[in-house]
């Protein structure tokens, strides 16, 4: 940039900055399309299963009577339902305090090849003020309906 007038230098700097920001924006847009983890309910999983290596979030109600702890004491199997279809889930770890049957849950993880959802993290309703945003739409009435349907 030597031998350049300050005015030209300002132009060059402006071009560099704008190019870098546009580059960052395009890169971000491309990566967001590929890396964002989409929210699924069991019906979506059945209708259009996500690719096995893709991180997704699965939300629904924990079916009554479905939580089973394996012999190792830390692996939990349960079934998530949206009132229409169900998806089996496996999770190894300490479950959230309010993770109980008939209550809402969001599982973060990937679809296994055998049709079981492998969760790496569970988000359960924490208290009245803090619950996974995805469960907002499920009103208590809907949740009760879902539970009564799935517990029969």
């Amino acid at each position: 940039m030597s031998g350049m007038k300050p005015k030209h230098q300002r132009l060059v700097l402006l071009v560099i900055a704008v190019a870098a920001l546009i580059g960052a924006g395009l890169l971000a847009a491309w990566a967001l399309r590929n890396q964002a983890s989409y929210f699924y309910v069991p019906s979506d999983i059945v209708a259009e299963p996500p690719a096995p290596d893709k991180a997704v979030r699965l939300g629904g109600m924990v079916q009554v009577g479905s939580i089973k702890t394996a012999d190792d004491g830390v692996t939990v199997h349960f079934v998530v339902s949206d009132g229409k279809v169900t998806v089996p889930v496996v999770y190894a770890g300490i479950v959230p305090d309010l993770f109980v049957e008939g209550s809402g849950v969001v599982a973060e993880g990937k679809m296994g090849t055998d049709g079981t959802f492998v969760a790496s993290n569970l988000l359960a309703k924490h208290d009245e003020n803090y619950m996974p945003r995805e469960l907002d739409d499920m009103t208590d009435a809907q949740a009760r309906a879902t539970v009564s349907e799935t517990s029969e």
């Binding site: 920001l21 960052a24 924006g25 971000a28 989409y38 929210f39």
Partner: peptide, 28 residues
């Protein structure tokens, strides 16, 4: 730093944008 700022800003706002179109995503 400005580019990283833009990347973090886009990633933070993206779920809000898609939600306006009824698609729920989380960016991590």
């Amino acid at each position: 730093l400005s580019a990283i700022l833009g990347i973090v800003l886009l990633g933070t706002l993206y779920p809000l944008l898609t939600e306006a179109f009824g698609v729920r995503v989380s960016v991590g």
